[in-house]
Design a protein around this nucleic acid. Structure first.
Length: 483
DNA sequence: CGACGGGACGC
DNA sequence: CGACGGGACGC
């Protein structure tokens, strides 16, 4: 594209982050950029021109850094008249460059996600988990037809592509959310054959199968594009900042299906101190498009506002979706990092055990205490330390314990309750249909403590053998390891 | 004794 | 109708 510096840019990365626009031939790259920049980080704009005459062919491409930005821009800009007297523009997600299809990419292909979920999840649980990213048309869990038991896989259909993109980008990585393939039975997956790098539909933006978005050589040094800088991937072995993979910013976007007024949205977000900008997005007729942009003077307010208002019902029955919007700030500075760390630490307390949207109260975040709910659930001959918080699921494990249960395995939640108490527990993994499990710890000493305290002990009538786990089997070549 | 990171929908 | 250019990392 016109302002992309010399770097590898043949693939659409992340997938579905590039727009294809049909416009008046008079529309310039500058006009396009100006119109689309409000929706996110525009990495490039390119108006296709005739080789000889150099005249525009009325076709353009706009590359965003995120699929959600591209989708939002598409939803907002499709059908708009950018210059008085010219035809309304058409905007679609661009076909991947490797694709030969000439059909438009339809919303149908962009609004349904495919996720991996605990087998215990009901469709209600699924909906509750993913409603924070947008209005859900329906949720389905894939079940065994005979036994009715969940296969641990589900589909979530949103109304808008941007909502699906937000879900993929921001939901917990453990859900492995990707765009669902359309329902057609002929599943032509020739993209996986050979060594084809990254098919456009194989991953979804950053959340799915692709692993972390680590910085790539070349992309970071580009001083003409300050937005291209992802959060510095520091090796943090505790309390990972970015537990939901979205960057924190001072800017928020709220989406609503019900028509809200500027005043209503202002009043709502003004409940959190520090709001310095609030604007409802309107169409050419001054009608609300169901989106508003809000900016706070500081990161903490924005994070808190997102935490509290995302999924908030206003008016009752209408759930608001609140997401971060890239504000182009340099978050690589030490100060910025510290601010985020601080804020993230405060958020952790509400983030651990389930959704954090408590509908009551706009008070500042309370200090974090471990959950104290189920006191008498554990019967054991061990004197257990108090509960401690889990570490984020994507924390690097420094030690794993291998646990054998006799005569039968303990439930997942009981194990979490017991094994978290020595600190730094990342996750409990029970091997299906077996009487063994793994406990991932971020800190070796914590794991050793747990081993020492629990080996040979009896919990709820189940005897535990606890030992250090053998190193994991070699990863498949499907997915590069993040660490 | 007891070993593990995976993915698809009855229209 | 409306689908893909220009330029070339360099330690």
């Amino acid at each position: 594209m016109e302002d992309l510096p010399a770097k590898q840019e043949n693939l659409d990365d992340p997938p579905n982050s590039r727009l294809f626009a049909v416009t008046s031939r008079s529309l310039t790259e500058e006009q396009l950029r100006e119109s689309f920049a409000v929706f996110g980080d525009v990495q490039g704009v390119w108006v296709v021109k005739d080789k000889q005459t150099k005249e525009s062919k009325g076709i353009s491409y706009v590359k965003f850094s995120k699929s959600s930005q591209a989708c939002t821009a598409m939803e907002e800009m499709h059908g708009k008249v950018l210059v008085e007297g010219t035809k309304p523009i058409k905007v679609f997600i661009a076909q991947s460059r490797s694709s030969n299809r000439h059909r438009d990419v339809e919303d149908e292909e962009l609004t349904r996600i495919f996720v991996m979920i605990p087998k215990t999840f009901s469709e209600e649980d699924l909906k509750d988990t993913f409603k924070e990213y947008g209005d859900i048309e329906y949720c389905v869990i894939i079940k065994n037809k005979f036994t009715g038991e969940s296969k641990g896989l589900g589909y979530v259909r949103y109304y808008k592509p941007s909502q699906a993109a937000f879900a993929i980008e921001n939901c917990d990585k453990s859900y492995r959310a990707i765009l669902a393939e359309p329902r057609s039975k002929a599943n032509v997956t020739e993209e996986y054959s050979g060594g084809a790098p990254r098919g456009d539909y194989s991953g979804g933006g950053g959340g799915g199968g692709g692993g972390e978005e680590e910085e790539e050589e070349g992309g970071v040094q580009d001083s003409t594009n300050q937005y291209a800088f992802p959060m510095a991937p520091e090796p943090v072995n505790y309390q990972q900042i970015d537990y939901r993979s979205g960057d924190f910013t001072r800017c928020l976007m709220v989406s609503t299906r019900a028509a809200l007024t500027q005043e209503q949205i202002f009043a709502l977000f003004d409940l959190i101190p520090g709001m310095e900008y609030c604007e409802l997005q309107r169409d050419a007729y001054g009608l609300s498009k169901g989106h508003a942009l809000i900016r706070y003077s500081n990161l903490g307010s924005a994070v808190y506002a997102k935490d509290k208002l995302n999924g908030f019902e206003f008016p009752p029955g209408n759930r608001l979706g609140v997401s971060y919007v890239d504000d182009g700030e340099d978050r690589s500075s030490p100060v910025g990092r510290m601010a985020m760390q601080f804020v993230a630490t405060q958020m952790m307390s509400s983030a651990w055990n389930g959704p954090s949207n408590n509908q009551q109260g706009m008070k500042p975040p309370p200090p974090s205490y471990p959950p104290v709910s189920n006191m008498q659930r554990i019967q054991t001959d061990v004197s257990l330390p108090p509960l401690k918080k889990l570490f984020p699921p994507d924390t690097k494990a420094k030690e794993r314990l291998f646990v054998v249960f006799s005569p039968s395995p303990l439930p997942h939640d009981v194990l979490e309750d017991v094994f978290c108490r020595f600190g730094s527990l990342i996750e409990v993994h029970l091997v299906p249909l077996r009487k063994v499990g793994y406990m991932k710890y971020a800190d070796k000493q914590c794991a050793d403590d747990a081993l020492a305290a629990l080996h040979g002990r009896i919990v709820n009538g189940v005897k535990l053998k606890v030992m250090l786990a053998d190193p994991p089997r070699e990863e498949s070549h499907k997915r590069p390891r993040t660490y």
